[in-house]
Design a protein around this nucleic acid. Structure first.
Lengths: 248, 248
DNA sequence: TGGCTTGTTGCTAAATATACAACATTGTTT
DNA sequence: AAACAATGTTGTATATTTAGCAACAAGCCA
């Protein structure tokens, strides 16, 4: 499978710009990619011609362009699961007072495709579009448990509690299948606990997962199983609405 | 300014896929681009390697990939105006019961970057990320009136009421500058009226516009000036919060 | 089965992109 | 202020890369 080099380079530049907080200059891009300034310049111009990047008027630095926003939104629109799931996310927020999320599998990670905030006052940056590892998030583990059996390649630790042993993970996935919900007990971010359950389509295939997340102070270990039962119930209702018949 | 051909072709393919409702096959892409199948195949593979497209398991057809969602969201995150404007959009929805929108200028069009729905029950597809013409939308005209004076190249008609004459448009822009708000009276979509006002930064430069839109039955011509005063007021409050001192 | 379409892979000619260099432009330092 | 440094852009020739052709493989339908 031969790659088209210049296209690949262009896409790599977009990946670079994603990281850069406030843009990158031509020379900077060239250095990072270990290509010549002139090549970087021409690639960036081509990207700019199609609005995939924009150059700041004053600083002449390049940033990701509005075209990506448009295209990204198209990806979202195509995921009808998102529309169907929204009322169920609202339900979770109403019942728990915590944030609710919807994710699907993409690039062997959990791709957040919707989010409902618990309080409009406390507004955080949207996590929609972000990718998270599967082995240490509730949404991810719920999808692993009911997925096609493919395991993540590496169990990278993020906190002290992150599961790094395949056997331990396998055991927990079995438990998740039995209980119907997955828990992330500060395994990804300190001070944050999450509960999630898988969503299935009419053929029983895994579609994604929904869940809630909140500060460990509110989502306590005493309450977490109640939350689990709730999330499992709501995820089941959603699956049912999508035509999934439990026990099939 | 020489364009890198293969990169440009890759980007054009993404543009194509944006239009295709349920994906495109290799041959289809090749035909549409008037390039060889083999070239299309290799370009698509490269795009797929970086998750800019995905091929459906069963049909082998290509669709826009999750990477675009991630990148698009980064574009949104960078627009801090969006965070600052959100409470003001909420205010507009509370006061009018109609949908509120925030847009900025991009690619000489109005790029919608946020939206607040009037009723959670009635959920339409998100317009975030979509581009609309400037000369026949309230948000667009508000930005034209307070922008750098650059006019749209063509005044394409969308409805019977769309302004297609430069002189008429210029006259209306003057009026908008005087009144402080712009109106779209079924000039873009039949049965929809919109009201919008410009948002400025601390130096008085145009940042974007906010406004409301609703069915002509509710947003009547009698009420529209009241809505206009309201939108102008709220947009002014937002500008003030961003450091804009009126009269500077 | 036999035609039909679609997707992928070798191969070589030929177009294309690359790096080098020179130049223009901006900002910085003494 | 003036020289300097750093950045971005534009020719140009070489050499790499890509494009199209053709053959092949795989699925689909009648």
């Amino acid at each position: 499978m031969a790659e088209i080099q210049s296209l690949a380079r262009g896409l790599k530049i977009l990946n670079l710009l994603e990281q850069a907080r406030d843009g990158m200059g031509t020379t900077e891009v060239a250095k990072e990619m270990t290509i010549d300034k002139s090549s970087a310049s021409r690639l960036l111009h081509t990207l700019a011609n199609y609005d995939y990047v924009v150059q700041d008027d004053s600083s002449a630095r390049y940033q990701l362009g509005p075209r990506l926003l448009t295209l990204g939104q198209r990806v979202l629109d195509r995921i009808s699961l998102r529309d169907r799931a929204r009322p169920f996310l609202d339900k979770l927020v109403d019942a728990t007072g915590e944030c609710a999320h919807l994710a699907i599998l993409a690039q062997r990670q959990a791709l957040y495709i919707d989010q409902v905030e618990s309080s409009a006052a406390l507004r955080v940056e949207s996590e929609i579009g972000t990718l998270s590892p599967l082995h240490c998030t509730a949404l991810g583990k719920a999808m692993l448990a009911f997925g096609d059996g493919a395991m993540p390649d590496s169990l990278r630790p993020f906190t002290q509690r992150t599961i790094t042993d395949q056997a331990v993970l396998q055991a927990q996935l079995l438990q998740i299948r039995q209980r119907g919900y997955a828990i992330d007990d500060e395994e990804y971010n300190y001070g944050v606990r999450c509960v999630a359950a898988a969503v299935h389509d009419h053929r029983g295939l895994l579609l994604g997962a929904i869940g809630i997340s909140g500060p460990a102070g509110r989502v306590t270990l005493e309450r977490i199983d109640d939350f689990g039962a709730l999330v499992r119930q709501v995820a089941g209702d959603l699956s049912a609405k999508l035509g999934f018949v439990a026990g099939c």
